[in-house]
């Protein structure tokens, strides 16, 4: 089970839940599971999110593998200049 941390203002779409365990082996599976549990997150997830898996930030990649003991931080989609 990956340990998932919902960060900051995204919590307003998860009924205040900030940490939960999700059984998912890829980023897409994890995001699907999150949206299923918290439908209010769907707009944000569709617009794009960044995920930090064990400290490395990934932008919008569906099939990044997630280890059984990984910590995944869900953040808004980041942009550069």
């Amino acid at each position: 089970m990956a340990h998932v941390v919902i960060f900051g203002s995204l919590r307003s779409f998860t009924d205040g839940v900030s940490e939960l365990e999700i059984d998912a082996r890829s980023t897409r599976a994890l995001l699907n599971a999150l949206v299923e549990r918290f439908p209010a997150l769907s707009e944000t997830v569709e617009a794009g999110v960044s995920l930090a898996i064990d400290g490395e930030i990934y932008k919008e990649a569906w099939f990044t593998p997630i280890g059984p003991d990984s910590e995944v931080v869900v953040m808004p989609l980041m942009v550069g200049g």
Binding site: V5, F7, G8, A52, D54, G55, E56, I57, E71, V73, M75
Partner: peptide, 12 residues
């Protein structure tokens, strides 16, 4: 390395 950053993830 290992610090939990103010925006969430731990630094490498």
């Amino acid at each position: 390395e290992g610090t939990k950053s103010s925006y969430g993830p731990r630094f490498k």
